[in-house]
Write a protein that binds this DNA or RNA. Structure first.
Length: 403
DNA sequence: TCTGGGGTCCTAGGACCC
DNA sequence: TCTGGGGTCCTAGGACCC
């Protein structure tokens, strides 16, 4: 039996934010709990020791579900759903405000715990990572006699390490590449391990809905279904030339490869940011003229926050952009590339002013944002930064500038 | 009672240069 | 005098992901 040349794991923390909250409020275990809403009230302990929680039914205003517990999902409440809609489905669900500092702390803990077992890690956000297991001793040494056994044992070791460090569970998919591992980690959630080889493609992957592939979103998913392609196997059976006619050269070719489980992307252990941004959605839609002073203040504040992000991370940028979202959810962007990189709030604000002049304000605004890209480093040596950015991982060698 | 905030990548047209 | 081809940068929008 031919063995894959790589073993790549995808690790996904189970209902991450909600599970972190349950560590703090274990009495909520098993109940429908929703994280979200900027103004949600934190739980309050009464004089008699009992707790008072905000309920979904009492929430008014804008906001979406950030995460929900499995009990809430059973009631039809999922991530990105509007809170008002969620309240219709689960009025009695407990509503907790998001505590990102806490989630970031647990994120660092679980990644460090994984790194003790397998150090080649690619960060994919706060609650998931890819891990290249190919050269982990327990995997490498099992090649030839019991590869699947070796891989599963290492997966259990990783889960145990994460559990000891955080008290949280995760799900792991292990396959020859990132694309398949991302799918596999979802097949036995929560607290599961799924190992697949290419031979499992027809039995385990092809029956799945096309949207299970990372990279097929709402638009492409709808289009595929309208074309009569509902499962991954349907895409795999389609003529690649026809896929290219329908979806263009690049995406059509990718669809064909993805449906056949082919993906050669490496696990990337270090990356530099491309852009930094800050944005805010208003409690009520604001009028460009009537609320002009308030809008100016909000933009000042966004620029201040972006400037402090740049300072903390030691970047400067040459391209400044604004994002405006009007009532009706129509979004407009404008950007401006300067001759030199900037980093302070006043310079950013001035460039934003130039961008704003190029927009017609004929509707009320629901969101404003500011973004900076074309980034360059300022000060401090790069190797030290890499170590800070990905604790416990072996940083890739940097291309140092000559001057 | 629609639709947060932080990102990445891709496409496509026009400017500009050789 | 009417118009090639390639490369890169800038700008705007959109799909997608966590």
């Amino acid at each position: 039996m031919p063995q894959p040349d790589r073993w790549i794991a995808h690790l996904d923390m189970d209902a991450f934010y909600a599970s972190v909250e349950l560590l703090r409020y274990p009495q909520l275990k098993g109940l429908p709990v929703v994280i979200g809403g900027r103004r949600a009230d934190a739980p309050q302990q009464r004089a008699d020791g009992s707790w008072h929680y905000a309920r979904l039914r009492d929430y008014t205003g804008r906001g979406v579900v950030t995460t929900s517990t499995y009990a809430a999902r059973d009631l039809g409440v999922f991530s990105a759903m509007g809170l008002m809609k969620a309240a219709l489905r689960a009025p009695d669900a407990v509503l907790l405000p998001a505590d990102f500092d806490s989630y970031r702390k647990y994120s660092r803990l679980f990644k460090a715990a994984v790194a003790e077992v397998a150090p080649v890690i690619e960060d994919r956000g706060i609650d998931e990572i890819y891990i290249d297991l190919t050269d982990v001793p327990g995997v490498r040494d099992a090649v030839g006699h019991d590869p699947l056994g070796g891989v599963k044992a290492v997966a259990r070791e990783i889960k145990n390490s994460v559990g000891r460090a955080t008290g949280l569970t995760c799900s792991i998919g292990i396959t020859p590449n990132k694309l398949l591992s991302k799918i596999a980690s979802e097949l036995d959630k929560p607290d599961g391990i799924t190992v697949l080889t290419m031979e499992d493609l027809p039995g385990r992957i092809w029956p799945l809905a096309v949207r299970k592939i990372n990279g097929i979103g709402p638009k492409a998913g709808d289009k595929l279904v309208k074309l009569g392609l509902e499962t991954v196997g349907d895409i795999a059976a389609a003529d690649p030339r026809w896929l290219i006619e329908q979806f263009g050269d690049s995406y059509g070719t990718w669809l064909h490869h993805a449906s056949h489980g082919r993906d050669s992307r490496p696990v990337v252990t270090h990356s530099e940011p491309v852009s930094l941004s800050r944005e805010t959605t208003f409690e009520r839609d604001l009028h460009a003229v009537h609320d002009r002073a308030l809008l100016g203040q909000i933009m000042d504040d966004l620029c201040e926050r972006l400037a402090s992000d740049l300072e903390r991370k030691r970047y400067a940028g040459k391209t400044v952009g604004i994002k405006l979202r009007f009532e009706g959810f129509v979004t407009v962007t404008r950007d401006l590339t300067l001759k030199t990189a900037i980093r302070n709030a006043a310079d950013i604000r001035a460039a934003v002013g130039q961008c704003l002049k190029r927009v017609t304000f004929d509707k009320r605004l629901r969101l404003m944002g500011v973004r900076i890209s074309n980034l360059s480093h300022t000060g401090q040596d790069v190797a030290a930064r890499a170590a800070v950015n990905s604790p416990g991982t072996v940083a890739a060698p940097e291309n140092l500038p000559l001057f």
